[in-house]
């Protein structure tokens, strides 16, 4: 009896330590980024760092505004492309397709998530970039190209999470609605989607997180010019690309400025997540 109780306590302690180490990893990363990137932001002024239009690290001009705008543009673009497509797929698989088709298609869609991002970038470079250059103009490497590639990359996340939440809506809601003379589509629009709202929102948040954090595929198709694009056919550089492209050779204040880029990214993701979570919980309560 005492032996059992002792081993129970040991296991509890062990699990606590493991859980704590996971949390402390997050804590250490946060501390490290802020410690490395914080001082330089204050040295050159927070305002000029965030809203500065120019990025010339060799001349000690560190303005991140083009990259902030770039990240937000490609993320928004990815959502505009990926969310309607993903949601439509999820609705089709959950409500309209035969069960057999859904059983085949769902794993195939999830396979998309397993493709390395460099492969997406490569495919974009081979097919999408020439297509945009020849048909729409511009250099091809562009906001549009990055948005399309990211839009496809977030599909598995958006589809599988919204599919699960649509399937979790009890069938009795559907039956009740259909018995009231609703068509299938009316039922989906007025009953199923509102009931699955919080899960669908979670799917969009996770997709957004994936899009804003993605680096490799974006570097390959976005063109990476550190200036605010004048149209969606112009090249763009994101915050993540900025770090990945320059970290290899950066030193001194340049290196610190890249860590500061990480700080900005960190804060943006936190803010977006919080906003999304707040909307989700408020709508969930209604």
């Amino acid at each position: 009896m005492t032996d059992l109780r002792k081993s129970d306590r040991l296991i509890k302690l062990g699990l606590l330590m493991i859980a704590f180490s996971a949390i402390s990893a997050l804590f250490v990363i946060t501390l490290f980024i802020f410690e490395q990137g914080g001082p330089i932001m204050f040295k050159y002024g927070l305002k000029s760092f965030i809203f500065g239009q120019d990025w010339y690290p060799s001349e000690k001009i560190f303005g991140l505004w083009p990259m902030i705008v770039g990240s937000l543009m490609v993320t928004l673009g990815a959502l505009i492309i990926g969310v309607p497509l993903g949601l439509a797929t999820a609705i089709f698989l959950a409500e309209f397709s035969s069960r057999r088709l859904a059983r085949i298609l769902k794993p195939v869609i999830e396979l998309l998530a397993g493709i390395p991002s460099v492969v997406y970038g490569f495919l974009g470079l081979m097919f999408l970039i020439p297509f945009i250059r020849e048909n729409l103009g511009g250099p091809g490497l562009s906001v549009l190209a990055a948005s399309i590639i990211l839009g496809i990359m977030i599909l598995p996340t958006v589809i599988s999470i919204s599919l699960d939440s649509i399937r979790a809506v009890p069938d009795c809601y559907r039956e009740g609605s259909i018995a009231l003379g609703a068509t299938r589509w009316q039922t989906v629009r007025m009953v199923v989607l509102p009931a699955a709202r919080s899960g669908i929102l979670a799917a969009i948040i996770l997709g957004m997180g994936r899009a804003i954090g993605e680096t490799m595929a974006v570097i390959m198709v976005a063109g990476n010019a550190a200036e605010i694009p004048s149209s969606i056919l112009q090249p763009v550089r994101t915050l993540t690309s900025n770090i990945a492209l320059e970290m290899g050779y950066a030193a001194g204040e340049h290196r610190q400025a890249l860590f500061a880029t990480g700080v900005i990214l960190f804060v943006i993701i936190m803010v977006l997540n919080t906003i999304a979570n707040l909307t989700a919980s408020r709508q969930g309560k209604r």
Binding site: P170, C172, Y173, E175, G176, S177, I178, A179, L180, G181, M190, V191, P194, A195
Partner: peptide, 17 residues
């Protein structure tokens, strides 16, 4: 249209959310 002629009440009350 046929289903609109019939009102149906189920065993478990299922108000829509």
């Amino acid at each position: 249209a046929l289903r609109r002629k019939f009102g149906m009440v189920f065993a478990t009350p299922i108000p829509l959310p």
